[in-house]
């Protein structure tokens, strides 16, 4: 049974979505305009809000061991990531800390069966805003907002840097072309970052699109 909608995006999105899906108490826009046009835009340049994807953090000396018991494929090195089966991502953000973002298919985040974490593993609330900048011209947009040279970036490795003045985790993701990046940032700064990116994307004629164009295999 779907949960009632209790979670909202920090962003002001263009219009009522053409289609959406419920995701752990949030609504994920699948497209706004026309799915085909958005798919084309995603090749060229587009911005997509994925803040609805559920996220969680796990921290403490026992975090690694506990996550392993949940069959989560853990990255070995700090700042590296692995893919979850539902399209989600898990990133090792410190020696004793992981950040997990679920994919769009609604798979639950790992929680203890009895509700109690082991004494040395602490859940950390993660409510980061999450967005994707994609398309061939994404690199040009990034050059206006970030002093990091993404042409040298390693795929699937998170880069902590400053984007449009906002400290962000940037994730040049595999699965779609290299110029596609995912950004996570503190929710309180997210509107500022989003507005800056929207303004620049508009100048490059890049629209805001729904998630379907990114996750073509959405069930």
């Amino acid at each position: 049974m779907p949960l009632p909608i209790t979670r909202t995006s920090p962003f002001e999105l263009p219009s009522t979505p053409g289609a959406s899906r419920d995701l752990a108490g949030a609504s994920l826009a699948l497209w706004f305009d026309d799915p085909e046009r958005e798919r084309q835009a995603a090749q060229r340049l587009a911005l997509c809000d994925l803040s609805a994807l559920p996220k969680a953090g796990y921290k403490g000396n026992g975090a690694t061991a506990w996550l392993q018991t949940h069959q989560t494929p853990l990255p070995a090195e700090t700042f590296e990531s692995t893919r979850l089966t539902d399209g989600g991502i898990i990133v090792k953000v410190a020696a004793d800390e992981y950040f997990l973002e679920a994919g769009p298919s609604g798979v639950d985040l790992p929680v203890p069966s009895n509700g109690e974490f082991p004494p040395d593993c602490f859940p950390v609330v993660r409510e980061d805003a999450s967005l994707v900048l994609c398309g061939a011209r994404a690199a040009a947009v990034l050059l206006q907002v970030c002093g990091y040279d993404f042409s040298t970036a390693t795929l699937d490795r998170v880069i902590y840097t400053r984007v449009a003045g906002v400290d962000s985790a940037v994730f040049p993701a595999a699965g779609y072309p290299h110029t596609h990046v995912k950004l996570w940032c503190d929710r309180s700064y997210a509107v500022s970052l989003w507005n800056s990116l929207v303004e620049i994307c508009e100048e490059f004629e890049g629209p805001i699109i729904g998630a379907q164009a990114l996750f073509t295999d959405l069930p």
Partner: peptide
């Protein structure tokens, strides 16, 4: 994090 501009 490796080499970064000092502004970070």
């Amino acid at each position: 994090n490796g080499p970064r501009p000092i502004q970070e």
